[in-house]
Design a protein around this nucleic acid. Structure first.
Lengths: 206, 206
DNA sequence: CTTAGCTCTAAGCAACCGCTTAGTATGGAG
DNA sequence: CTCCATACTAAGCGGTTGCTTAGAGCTAAG
């Protein structure tokens, strides 16, 4: 095995560390790249195999179907971003919300390849797999809502509509995956910081 | 011709009024519905024809290819939302930005079917068609930026990063098309009003 | 060395894709 | 009535799709 275009990628993205064996992980990373750049339906199993440097049939050694490949990506991606959002710390509700938005928006920029698949290919999942992922999405929403609710209870935030504000904040962060480009003016960290600032302005009292 | 599921739709959505002849318009509306619910690549020309109540070959009487169908949708959709954003009026920069966000976000809710195709199927356009649409997107961004810049010049907005804030505001509105569902708690107008309020909070001075 | 088990490939199958072709129905002009 | 243009359908073509099958290559236990 020499170059398949994956070498640099797998070093940058540690999301798939736990996927074994090696060939299964390379296949998954190839699928992430292909799904992200062309979309799930426009990607053929031959594309994925070719990106991973293997034959078309090799896909089915490690995965039952193309959809199962997508489900694995979606599941690990959602679990990773939920874990990230759950690990937020900080002094006071304002600091915690700031850290949460910076982390969540920053993740959607830094791992925009994974994030694009996670956020925009949900509809290609089977009903059973979709339901499983939807539960994780509910938990993500609940986490973000609690960060905002904390500030309201502390009296440091002024939010007329808690559910609406949560929706807007999550929406803002998620949409980063749509427009972010690696060669752009802002680094993922800068985007995270800028968005954290904008969100805090949104919830601050008059 | 009796029911194809389009009758109610075409009454609700006046975006395609100018498309003639009638069969071409019905085909386009069928394509919008199919592209929006399954994505461009997952939609077959047989799906579209069937939704329009015609034979598969009828698509090619009015359109050269499936991609040209998408291009027409994308072009008219972008022109419509640009026209909407360009027609904003109001007393003072704050009122104009408020109206602009309410209209733009509201449009992405009310016409979420069209908006989904417009915003999420850009990558399926041919390079030439994509370039044509990209120019319209630049004009949309410029419009929104000028509404924010006006407030900064008037001294009623405090925005550290004009381009960043414009990006965030557009992003917030566009992402409505991703999460909006017709049966939801909020009407398109309510979403527009809520988002206008959130954006004004974001740009107001301390 | 034998054998079992795992990973992978070469070849290909049935189904489906976008699109074309040949021909039919319709309606208006002369 | 004939003639012709337009709008449509039935049938199907070449190519591609997701996935399967049969078997080869490799590793390691006995």
């Amino acid at each position: 095995m020499t170059t398949t275009g994956l070498d640099g990628f797998s070093l940058l993205d540690e999301t798939w560390r736990t996927v074994t064996p090696d060939a299964a992980r390379r296949m998954l990373i190839a699928a992430v790249q292909a799904f992200a750049s062309k979309g799930y339906h426009a990607t053929t199993t031959r594309d994925i195999a070719s990106l991973a440097g293997m034959s078309p049939a090799a896909v089915y050694i490690h995965y039952r179907s193309k959809e199962e490949l997508l489900f694995n990506i979606s599941l690990v991606g959602h679990e990773t971003s939920l874990a990230l959002l759950s690990s937020i710390q900080g002094d006071g509700a304002a600091q915690r919300l700031k850290n949460a938005v910076a982390a969540f928006a920053g993740w959607h920029a830094e791992f925009h390849t994974t994030a694009r698949v996670v956020q925009y290919e949900l509809g290609a999942l089977s009903p059973e797999h979709h339901a499983e992922v939807a539960e994780l999405r509910r938990q993500i929403e609940q986490r973000m809502r609690s960060y905002i609710a904390d500030g309201v209870e502390e009296g440091v935030f002024d939010v007329p509509d808690l559910k609406g504000a949560t929706l807007a904040v999550l929406s803002l962060c998620i949409d980063v995956a749509r427009w972010y480009q690696p060669g752009g003016k802002r680094t993922p960290d800068e985007i995270g910081a800028m968005y954290a600032d904008l969100v805090l302005r949104m919830v601050r009292p008059n």
